[in-house]
Each structure stands twice: as C-alpha cells, then as structure tokens.
Design a protein around this nucleic acid. Sequence first.
DNA 1: CGGTATCCCGCGCGATACTG
DNA 2: CAGTATCGCGCGGGATACCG
Lengths: 132, 132
Amino acid sequence: MDSSETPFGYDAFRRTCPSHTVLEMLASKWVYLTVCALRRGRLRNGELARKLEGITPKMLTQTLRVLERDGLVRREVFPVIPPRVEYELTELGQNLAGLLNQIRSWAEEHAPEIKDARVRASAVHGEMAAAS
Amino acid sequence: MDSSETPFGYDAFRRTCPSHTVLEMLASKWVYLTVCALRRGRLRNGELARKLEGITPKMLTQTLRVLERDGLVRREVFPVIPPRVEYELTELGQNLAGLLNQIRSWAEEHAPEIKDARVRASAVHGEMAAAS
DNA sequence: CGGTATCCCGCGCGATACTG
DNA sequence: CAGTATCGCGCGGGATACCG
C-alpha cells in the first residue's frame, strides 16, 4: 500500500532504507551550496572556497569527498606546480543540482516572509528585548 | 553581476543573507521528512511520530516548532480529553513540499547507484573487511 | 595552491522519565 | 495523547598550524 509514495521500492521514511541515508547526506548546508556552486561548470578548490562564504578548508574538503564518494562530483588533478585541482558535477550530480537549485531559489524568494514570520513568532513569545 | 543567480536580491551563498538561514533550516533530515509527511494533508502528533521512523518525541516537537515559527506549518489544538493536536502545511509550506518531495523521490530513485558508488569508493580505499 | 592533521568546544540529538 | 524536563555523549564543525 501507499506505493504511490515510493514508486521505486525505496522509502526514505524508513531508517534502514538506503534512500534514507541519501537524504541524510543531502541534508547539509554545505552540500546544498557546493552542488549549486558547481552547477554552472567546473571550479577550482580556491574558487569554491571563495564562493562558499565562511566555509573552512576542512569542511570544503570533507564535503567534496562525500560528494565524490557518492558519485555526484568528479575530481581532476593536474600534475603541475603550483597544484591545480578542478571539481565538476557528474551527470548524476547535474541532475540533482537542478533540484537543489530550486530549493535555493525558493529560499531566496521566500526569505522575506519567513523572516517576518520569525519576527512575529518572537514577538508573541515575549521576546521584546529590543523594545527600548 | 551574476544577478541571474539571485533574481530576488538575496544570495544564499552569503552567510549574513536571510536566505542563508532559511537554507540552514531546510538542511535537516527531519524537516525534509516532516514536510513530506504532511504533504497529503493534516496529521496528528502520534501519526507523525509513527510515520517518521526513529524520531524521538523531542525532535518531533522541536522540528514542528521550527516549521511553525517559520510559517510553514499550522498547529491546531482541540480542547478535548484525551488531547488532540493536528498539524498541517500552510500555503507556503505546501509550496515548499512540492520541491522537497522531488528531492525525496530523487533520493529513492537514485539510491541504488549511490549505494554502488559508495561500495566502489570503499573498495578503492582498501576497506575490504568483508572480503572473507 | 590544495590540501592534511590536530585540538577542542558547543550543541544536536538520542534516551529516559515525568505531567496535564 | 501530546507533549515538557533533564541528562549526557557523540561528533559535527570551527580554528589553527603544518606539509608537498
């Protein structure tokens, strides 16, 4: 029953389902942004670091390794000095990038009303510290 | 420049941009699943708890409070005994649910190849403990 | 330049028990 | 039934320093 929700025999609501771990992987701010950043084409490590404002070297590498491991990103090393490494989305990654970018657009489009909703919620719960 | 990426004047790549905090809120496994679970209509607390396999009471409440605060979920309390509380998506929430559900579908659809990619990655890095 | 390696803090989140 | 309260730990992730 309810197979209309899971036409592929996988069910992300189940902890033990592989698709659940995929969802866990996707549920990361840096994964979102990294995939979106690579959407227009390949980028170097430093270019990514600059585009992903606030990311630390550690998190950048870690995020890219996860994406590479899962087949969403391809890593290419050029044996030159100084080193040059480029990252690009695989086809699978590009496929996903379309969806993630919609989420990003949605976040940007609806940021104002969500911000307002948060302000209203704070007001209701007596957080009027700025009332002075 | 690059305004084609941010047609609404917001830029999720910037830490201080409100849309960035929205993306952070969305980057949560339980937010994903809760919104998807409510997609077909309103549900009671217990129904959600059963559908979201493995969620603790604490995380369920916390997630619902965040979604309510941000205007994605509406909470309705019925003053009866035993208590009855129902949750449903607002219009904004339903709007988002379409996108999140695509991600979930994508995760379920591509779970096999990602699982394979992980196995291959493990093999390469010498993790052949199961080779016996 | 493109990474690792280390340290360590904060808090996310789970487990459990209790209340109206 | 639908939550709160409390405790605790694991680890995500930031800061920093170092390497090829």
